[in-house]
Design a protein around this nucleic acid. Structure first.
Lengths: 195, 195
DNA sequence: GCTTGACCTGAACGTGCGTTCATATCCATC
DNA sequence: GATGGATATGAACGCACGTTCAGGTCAAGC
């Protein structure tokens, strides 16, 4: 016996990635088995190997896809000329983008160490490119005399950590809307960075 | 055969916890086996069970011990009267304390989800107590007219995330000393929070 | 110097792991 | 309506897991 009715590659592939994303985010890469992922999709474990060479590739594809999406989304954002407005745009973009995909963000930070070294290097360089976008804004604002940023590299780390931290506490239907959170974090950022 | 020369409870216990801390931080709780921990100590896996009821308790003890140490250390810090100085003391204390024990900090953030629910609740309440110390400082400063903190809860989250982020990039023998890092982060904090 | 209990070994338990593969079924195409 | 490739099953592979335990070895107290 085999192949139950209505199963197609175009459906199963994405469903496997979605199940892996959810389970990796909830329990961690090492704690999730291929059989669990398969069960979530409604398939036997062996069928997963029609879509991924192995478990490691499944994790890497998720992280790689997420970083590509992040960089593409930021490039597609309108880029105001003034550094102040670019910085505000970055703050709001980062918070919104991250809150919209908490699971991908979670594994992007937690599962880096479970990547093979060469896979890690790929993700790390994409991350650095994203951080570099923020550093560039800070340098521009500093050069334009609009910001006070003694150490742009540290300010980048500080801001990214602060903004990404929203994901650890924000809850839908909590006290604040996403807009309110963005407003408050932009206010804190502005006070910290702007002249 | 059994018990090799010179092995004693007073030594083996701490060595097991040290090995578990190092391995959990490096590979993750789920990815580390009791046999690996035992090998690191130079003992057979079964011997671990003279010191811990199970693997879960090993993780919980590490996190619990770390949180106790953190709270005790903060209580033993001198507490200046002025909110500005209390905030500065907190910033410097947090960075220094965290940089001094990167492995414990790492697992405290990464392995929470691997705790049993009741163990998680214990750690979570200790963490909230520590965060509450910072929130208190922010409220005091606000009440004294020295700070501008529209939302003390969010400012607490933002600051803790920003300060804890230092651990992800700081390297001994890097560009900056711990003192310089503290200075820069205190400067950013002051600009963000102080009047 | 005998005894006792703490400490450790080494083997074993049942379970689940990632992965492979022969085989069966389905669907599109002709 | 026959055919062939894509897609799935289910059993199996060897291995490692957390944990238990009977038994061996040591050191301290009498």
């Amino acid at each position: 016996m085999a192949r139950t009715q209505g199963s197609h590659s175009a459906q199963t592939g994405p469903r496997i990635r979605a199940a892996a994303l959810r389970l990796f985010a909830k329990h961690g890469y090492a704690a999730v088995s291929m059989r669990q992922i398969a069960a979530e999709v409604g398939v036997q474990a062996g069928a997963l190997y029609n879509y991924t060479p192995d478990k490691q590739a499944l994790l890497f594809d998720l992280l790689r896809g997420h970083m590509d999406e992040l960089l593409r989304a930021w490039q597609n954002e309108p880029a105001p000329a003034a550094p102040d407005q670019r910085l505000e745009a970055f703050v709001r973009f980062h918070i919104r983008f991250n809150l919209a995909r908490p699971e991908a963000i979670f594994i992007s930070y937690m599962e880096l160490r479970n990547l093979d070294p060469e896979n890690f290097a790929v993700i790390e360089s994409l991350r650095k490119r994203y951080e570099g976008a923020l550093t560039g804004i800070l340098r521009d604002g500093q050069a334009a005399g609009r910001f006070t940023v003694p150490d742009p590299a540290l300010a980048t780390y500080a801001l990214i950590a602060m903004l990404t931290g929203v994901n650890t506490w924000y809850r839908d239907k909590g006290r604040l809307t996403v807009d309110q959170v963005c407003d408050i974090y932009w206010d804190m950022t502005r006070r910290m960075i702007a002249i």
